[in-house]
Computed example of a mutant assay.
Amino acid sequence: MDANGEELAPAVRSILAAARDRAGGEERLSVDARSFPAAVADAEAEGRVPVIAEVKPTSPTTDGRRDDEPVDLARAMVDGGATAISVLTEPDHFGGTPESLARIREAVDVPVLRKDFIVQESQLDLVASDLILLIARFVDDLDALVTAAEERGFQPLVEVHTREELDRALEAGADLIGVNNRDLAQLEVDLDTFETIAPHVPDDVTLIAESGIGSAADVRRMREAGADALLIGSAIMDGDVTENVRRFTTA
């Protein structure tokens, strides 16, 4: 079950159980983060749709695995116009590693998001990144974890799926919010989720649409609904990542 006592899909339960057992870093990090809102503004000024392109070797919701060198993938995504790079560091279900993130962040000049299932403060200290994902559904004390992330210099991106989670994120002071179109109970994707929640997000929050974006039409739909940026994984990893990113950033 999640922090709200709700049932999760079996794959998600397995991911969360592993996350609760995973050790954190041994020393408290201090991060000099690259500004994601500034990167979004730069992309807009240059006429690009702001896209966070995701380096995701595999996942429970996709078939197969991609074993390209992660740094090469990230550089290719930046060449296609990616505003930021998301890197999975969850090892058991997504094939990610903190080492890959560290090498990618050294190799690119755009903000890098650490995407993982962080449930306790010490796990913030595993590897430096510019943004760090905090999933409201999985975190018992969201206020404390947002504060702990900010104290280290991270820009916390708080992921929500419901109005109740959005309210928790806003109460915790989040100014970067991602709406996940995927329901973690059934693993079903519905772009209506973003369209339902977006009108309730304050204008001074940077709003990101996540999951289920697979076409230029999806990009336009999310942008019209209020997305400042989009996080796209599988649709970019499937094929030529540079061309795929370019297709979305010019939609």
Rank of each mutant, 00 (worst) to 15 (best):
M1N: 12
M1H: 14
N4F: 15
N4Y: 15
G5D: 06
G5I: 05
E6Y: 11
P10Q: 09
A11P: 01
R13N: 09
R13D: 09
A23M: 03
L29W: 06
S35P: 07
F36L: 05
A38D: 14
A39I: 04
V40P: 01
D42Y: 08
A45S: 14
G47C: 08
V51I: 14
A53M: 01
A53F: 02
K56V: 08
T58I: 07
T61V: 14
T61I: 15
D63S: 15
G64W: 03
R65K: 15
D67T: 12
D68T: 01
P70C: 09
L73Y: 05
L73G: 03
A74G: 12
A74Q: 09
A76P: 02
M77W: 14
V78P: 00
D79N: 11
G80E: 08
G81A: 11
A82D: 08
A84G: 12
A84N: 13
S86F: 04
P91H: 04
G95I: 03
L101D: 02
A102Q: 14
A102E: 12
R103L: 15
R103Y: 05
R103P: 00
E106D: 14
A107L: 06
D109W: 04
P111V: 03
F117N: 00
F117T: 00
I118W: 13
I118N: 10
V119I: 00
E121H: 12
S122G: 09
S122R: 15
V127Y: 10
A128K: 12
D130Q: 07
D130C: 09
L131E: 02
I132N: 03
L134A: 01
R137S: 11
D140I: 15
D140C: 14
D141C: 00
D141E: 00
L142I: 11
A144N: 08
A144F: 10
E150V: 00
E151N: 07
F154M: 07
F154P: 02
Q155F: 10
P156S: 15
P156D: 11
V158G: 02
R168S: 05
A169E: 02
L170P: 04
A172M: 07
G173P: 03
G173D: 00
A174N: 00
L187V: 10
L187A: 08
E188R: 10
D190P: 09
T196E: 13
I197Q: 10
I197G: 02
P199R: 07
V201I: 11
D204V: 04
V205Y: 14
T206N: 09
T206C: 12
G212Y: 03
G214T: 11
G214C: 06
S215Q: 12
D218T: 02
D218W: 03
D218H: 09
R223G: 11
E224D: 15
E224T: 10
A227W: 02
L231S: 04
I236S: 00
M237R: 01
D240S: 13
V241I: 12
T242K: 14
T242W: 12
F248D: 07
F248R: 04
T249K: 06
